[in-house]
Design a protein around this nucleic acid. Structure first.
Lengths: 201, 201
DNA sequence: AAGAAAAATGTACCGGGTTTGCTTTTGAAC
DNA sequence: GTTCAAAAGCAAACCCGGTACATTTTTCTT
């Protein structure tokens, strides 16, 4: 099943991504050409583009994408979408880390935040999430409400992510950032559930 | 004050944008090169890029950008940000049209929706709005709440815009789309004010 | 009419991404 | 082990968006 071919491909893919991330971190996204990356990774440019469709994807394919729609679709019966998401992010905030290497993740975030092209690319990725979430939500309510809910939720989650990673990038430890995130998550979901206007503000 | 120079510049700018929009509408954004546009508008490519910094901006600079932060900053004292925005969009939905040519606007929207590159570019424009709005809101509340509010609001407004224009593009009259928008605005701001979860759903 | 400032231009160039046509490597069958 | 098809890799030329440079044309001023 895991033939030599597959292993070599995976190895090459990792090497390319690692080299690219290192060069981007050293000199900035815009100051590195894909030719340099290909050369440093010892592949042809055309091969690089067979693994990664764009220069941006060299970084962005590495970051784990959430699956908001999946979380909502798989929630236990009787639980509201917001409750399901709130608990998911509660878990995320307390749990120390995932399979990904933390140092690598931080470097990725630093590189992404430092480059407008990458930030905007990361933004685009959330667009698909929004549509998928809207589709799931639309099964139980009218389309406009579903679209608005999805829009508000993804926007809030994006804000949380940005603050979390920005905190991390600016030198905070993972535990520190996580515990701050804990409180942030509660606030964000309270606002989503109860609205922006109430006097309890 | 309005010398020959200024008039000619404005004229050239309009000609370039009009030619570009026509070609994009005829053959799609990606299938038209800037060389073709420059040629058809009878300017050099370099000149075109002096007027419009990117190919996307040939379309996007034409669409009127809202100024959410400005609306909130200029609201009368005692009015909440959400009230101010709700009334602004109420006005927008009932008022028949603005200075812009409606047919041109519809073509622009059709072109934008048909091209991923342009849609994502339009999305980026809202990012600046979000930051500006967050800054204004942060004057009266903590930063996280301000950021979350700004995110939810811009996301909702974007959703409204999308639905409005999509309705228009698919053949609805301006009055028709406007009256539907009326109801949509109320729902969107109700959700923002009172939250997504309450039983009144 | 003269000359400075602004605008327009042609050409050459850069970098991201694709196409084409060819060679090498791998996996599987005999 | 040989053979063969599929997959992967490659070099080079190419397309397109965008920029740098040096030059020329147009407009404004006096």
């Amino acid at each position: 099943m895991a033939g030599l071919r597959e292993r070599k491909k995976e190895q090459t893919r990792r090497r390319i991504a690692a080299v690219a991330l290192r060069l981007f971190a050293e000199r900035g996204f815009d100051a590195v050409t894909v030719n340099e990356i290909a050369e440093a990774a010892e592949v042809a440019k055309v091969t690089l583009f067979k693994y990664f469709p764009t220069k941006e994807s060299l970084v962005l394919l590495g970051v784990g994408q959430e699956d908001l729609a999946g979380i909502v679709a798989a929630r236990p019966p009787g639980q509201s979408p917001l409750q399901a998401l709130r608990e998911h992010y509660r878990g995320f905030a307390t749990e120390p880390a995932e399979a990904v290497d933390r140092d690598t993740l931080i470097v990725q975030m630093r590189v992404i935040f430092a480059s407008p092209a990458l930030s905007s690319g990361a933004n685009d990725l959330l667009h698909g999430q929004r549509l998928a979430l809207a589709r799931v939500l639309a099964e139980e309510r009218d389309e406009l409400t579903a679209a608005l809910m999805a829009a508000q939720i993804t926007a809030s989650v994006l804000t949380l992510q940005e603050r979390f990673f920005r905190h991390l990038v600016s030198g905070a430890s993972l535990d520190e950032a996580g515990s701050r995130l804990c409180g942030d998550v509660e606030l964000a979901f309270d606002l989503l559930e109860h609205g922006l206007d109430p006097p309890g503000e």
